[in-house]
């Protein structure tokens, strides 16, 4: 795997406040990498350092093989940025905004026109391409800046809360586009507050709190890693006497809830094995067997709370 983003000891200090405190991570080619954190955690500052908008006070960021401080233009040529707040020129039409982007990225005019037509069509704005952006709704503006960011076919896309405050239709359109782009090979760095979005889209997640990285892993691993005690829910096709399951290997507690048993364990694997063996020995069939992982919301809250200074 090739790292398209390599952040090493990235630090930003505003006055006496350390907004980002020596964070290091890598994003591999083809990944959708989620960057989560509560408000004021340093997400946007980190994104701004990675995209060369503000310089870090310490540390380095290498984007697509180029140090963002040493070769900013070469690095920026390879990525696109979708900020949280639309920053298209509202006094220009969508088409003029696209043409401006084409010129700023050095695209030949016919190529820029072709790509613009395709992209505006894809985000449902082609029919309103000659309208000034100031007349656009928030969702339309957000779709436009996504199209602007994709004009030069970037290998890497930075998105900062791309669906924040959007209607369901625009949100679904953007998320579907991101999945398609990723399938075609675009690496995505996604800053979001939306746990469900992160859970469904991202291969890996990083959680930042008070400028420090507190966790970085796959969503499922993050969810399970926060609890040493796991929960398993099991049901059988016939009645199991009380206290029977508590004697099995790995089982700490077993409580009946309706027709199911909720089991706590420190060793999920051993417990599942012993439940299967138990059902075979007793000649009963397992009807359902679920491992109850905490939600990403719970993982996020736990991780950010634990890291609170």
């Amino acid at each position: 795997m090739t790292a398209v983003i390599q952040a090493s000891n990235l630090t930003k200090i505003f006055g006496k406040q350390t907004a980002v405190d020596h964070i290091s991570f890598e994003v591999q080619k083809g990944e959708i990498f989620g960057f989560l954190g509560p408000n004021g955690a340093g997400k946007t500052t980190t994104t701004r350092m990675l995209t060369g908008v503000i310089p870090p006070d310490a540390g380095t960021a290498t984007i697509l093989g180029h140090d963002i401080r040493v070769e900013p233009v070469l690095a920026k040529q390879g990525f696109g940025v979708v900020p949280e707040t639309s920053n298209a020129y509202t006094d220009l039409t969508a088409w003029k905004n696209m043409m401006l982007m084409g010129e700023l990225y050095g695209l030949p005019r016919p190529r820029a026109e072709q790509r613009s037509s395709d992209l505006l069509g894809m985000v449902g704005l082609l029919e309103r391409k000659d309208q000034k952006v100031q007349a656009y709704s928030k969702g339309m503006k957000q779709r436009l800046i996504l199209a602007m960011a994709l004009l030069h076919e970037p290998q890497l896309l930075f998105l900062d809360e791309p669906t924040s405050g959007l209607d369901v239709q625009s949100t679904q359109m953007i998320l579907s586009l991101l999945r398609d782009l990723n399938t075609q090979g675009t690496t995505i760095f996604l800053t979001t507050h939306n746990m469900e979005e992160a859970n469904r889209l991202c291969n890996r997640l990083a959680i930042i709190r008070a400028g420090k990285m507190v966790a970085i892993d796959a969503p499922e691993k993050l969810k399970t890693a926060i609890d040493r005690v796991h929960k398993i829910e099991v049901s059988f096709d016939r009645e199991i006497p009380d206290n029977t399951l508590e004697g099995l290997e790995g089982v700490m507690t077993a409580n009946r809830t309706g027709d199911k048993w909720q089991i706590t364990t420190r060793n999920k694997d051993a417990t599942i094995h012993s439940l299967v063996t138990f059902s075979q020995q007793k000649g009963t069939a397992i009807v359902t067997l679920n491992t109850l992982a905490p939600s990403l919301d719970e993982a996020f809250l736990r991780l950010t709370h634990e890291a609170q200074p």
Binding site: R48, T51, G52, V53, P72, V73, L74, K76, Q77, V81, P83, T85, N87, A88, Y89, T90, M101, L104, Y105, G106
Partner: peptide
């Protein structure tokens, strides 16, 4: 208008 940030993130 935050358009300066747009320019700053472009390869210029």
């Amino acid at each position: 208008a935050r358009t300066l940030e747009r320019l700053a993130s472009c390869p210029v």
